[in-house]
Design a binder for these strands. Structure first.
Lengths: 102, 102
DNA sequence: TCCTTATATAATCGTTTGATTATATTAAGA
DNA sequence: TCTTAATATAATCAAACGATTATATAAGGA
């Protein structure tokens, strides 16, 4: 893991809204529209957060008709995995039954 | 570990100069003056980076005459510890024999 | 006590970040 | 094909960040 990637991933993680996104994604795929409700910010803002996570290799996307579903990437680095493990213990996921809502 | 602390620590970690600082501190105490050389930035800039790390609970300071020595804090959180472990594998420490230079 | 040295704080400034609104794109359905 | 819905991109802007220079603080030594 090179230092540039480490810094990029840490910058992607260092935002409370993006931590909430990851907290939601622990339990599976979530579509963009759900994040708008959960985070309470505009749809373009959500889209930009997801792009930053994607560019850091932390999430992947899957197109499903008009909707786009995001999930945690495969083979996460130890740093990202540790953050997600800590989120498990910390943050009550506010995305209950998100799978059903889209 | 609450979410605010997690975000604060991640923000403190998400900077290449501060990662270099931590890489140096892996092997023990380092005084401020050494960081000026290692990072190639001004003394006030170094001071501000160290303050940010201290406020995140990642480093502690110890006054030694005119000099001030910084070291890694006791009981690091899993996230900080993982970042430091990754630095071990990644970044060649540019602080060789820093202990002797002050 | 005065001067020097190490460090911290204050003021300032250009760049980056995270939000918004407006607009573009793309797929589904009438 | 036209309209609607979901998402992305562009433009913009205020706030945060990271650097600098200037200044303050504090400890040691002549």
């Amino acid at each position: 893991m090179d230092i540039q990637l480490m810094e990029k991933q840490l910058k992607a993680l260092a935002d409370s809204n993006r931590l909430k996104v990851l907290s939601c994604l622990k339990s599976g795929e979530v579509c963009v529209c759900d994040f708008v409700d959960v985070l309470g910010i505009s749809q373009p803002a959500v889209s930009q957060h997801l792009r930053k996570l994607k560019e850091a290799g932390i999430v992947t996307e899957r197109k499903r008709g008009t909707w786009k579903h995001y999930r945690l990437a495969e083979g996460l680095t130890p740093i990202v995995q540790t953050v997600i493990d800590e989120l498990e213990a910390t943050m009550a996921c506010q995305c209950s039954s998100v799978e059903a809502s889209c």
